[in-house]
Write a protein that binds this DNA or RNA. Sequence first.
DNA 1: TGTACATCAGTGAACGCGCGTTCACTGATGTAC
DNA 2: TGTACATCAGTGAACGCGCGTTCACTGATGTAC
Lengths: 231, 231
Amino acid sequence: MVAHSLRARVRAGMIDEIKTVARRHLATDGANLSLRAVARDMGMVSSAIYRYFPSRDDLLTALILEAYDALGDAVEAADAAVERRDLRGRWHAVCRAARAWALAHPAEYALIYGSPVPGYAAPDDTVAPAQRPPVVLVGILHDGLTTGRLTPPPDELPDPLREDLAEVAAGLYPGMSEALLARGMAGWTQLFGLISFELFGRITRTLPHRDEYFDHQTGLMANLIGLPGPS
Amino acid sequence: MVAHSLRARVRAGMIDEIKTVARRHLATDGANLSLRAVARDMGMVSSAIYRYFPSRDDLLTALILEAYDALGDAVEAADAAVERRDLRGRWHAVCRAARAWALAHPAEYALIYGSPVPGYAAPDDTVAPAQRPPVVLVGILHDGLTTGRLTPPPDELPDPLREDLAEVAAGLYPGMSEALLARGMAGWTQLFGLISFELFGRITRTLPHRDEYFDHQTGLMANLIGLPGPS
DNA sequence: TGTACATCAGTGAACGCGCGTTCACTGATGTAC
DNA sequence: TGTACATCAGTGAACGCGCGTTCACTGATGTAC
């Protein structure tokens, strides 16, 4: 029992080390991750990896799942740390947490939000963790609605779009204002765009004050949504 | 003279064909473009490509430049086709043109706006063509300012950010309102985010009415900017 | 507690593959006199 | 107009490399009695 769990612990440690080394390789080689290179870095023969992962794609999938979860954890923790009623504070906290995580883990961010890896199809169990950040953002808006702190925007949607959004809302926050949901999704899109531009090196070459830029731009979206608070 | 230009024309035709075949390969293999595969598709031996491109990276660079230019052309043409004073119409035309081009050329879009290709450094002459779409968007706002059709937002920027933006404006549209420039960049970020999400298959799985969604979301940004017009 | 057996991690060789790039070559097409 | 030479496109073989994956193997570590 003790002996078996020791072996199991060693095994878990190896799996962790493989993933850690693989993450390091992501940083330099992007998503064309090489099993052989990982094995080399660990001082093993390449076939040894197969004791832990049945194929290269499985290793990739594990890394992708971990990345989604790490980002989701960071984002949810940031939200939870702010006073519930401070909608605008929560919004900024979530945006900043996502950006901070991405800047700290650029390769993993690229893995989950960059262009799709050719020939690799993400399995279905990545869908739920992938939605955690936008769900948190929209959750803030939902809280605002139910506590009356946030006034929903006028219904400004064409019918087909409203129906689509109603269906999305039904699976998430039933009864939510579709127009507000659309604005929340605009905020999420903006957040993703800001981080991607900064990380992939477009735009911000001539914008040294990146923190201020980021806060201002996410603040604009908070205004668009109608989040109460300073400025 | 005539003879020489014939050979030159044949040569130019070959270069075009290589690029066309290479573009086709981008669609399936992403940015790991294989010279040998391109040669194979053309019924040539792989070394023959070297008569036309000194290396694989040069071919990639050519494709990237062409992609930037094609998108830039599409966007500028869309803007030019709308009555100058119809700011909101121009805004929507530019957004739609960018999206349409991206949907029609997903691989080339991924090449220029996806995650950076590992080990490939884009040469400097990609910078100018890359900026054409955002320059057009901000140009619309600038036109609005100079014709008085657009009221600049109140100065809402922290000092360091205003200085950064003033420098950007100086090289582009001197004297432009920094706060308005920031909003224009927010619009550009949103546009990029919307297209990327749609193309890379996040978010829109449950949103069948994509055109309506796109128009609505870009319309929200037009509102944020303060573009006059319906809705 | 001690022994016989099963499980498991890691080895090393091999498979078949594709890649970018170089190089000496063959013909055909153009140029100069 | 006709010939001698230079230019150029494309060939085919070869270089050295890295890759994912399979497989029979050796020891060491754990398990059952």
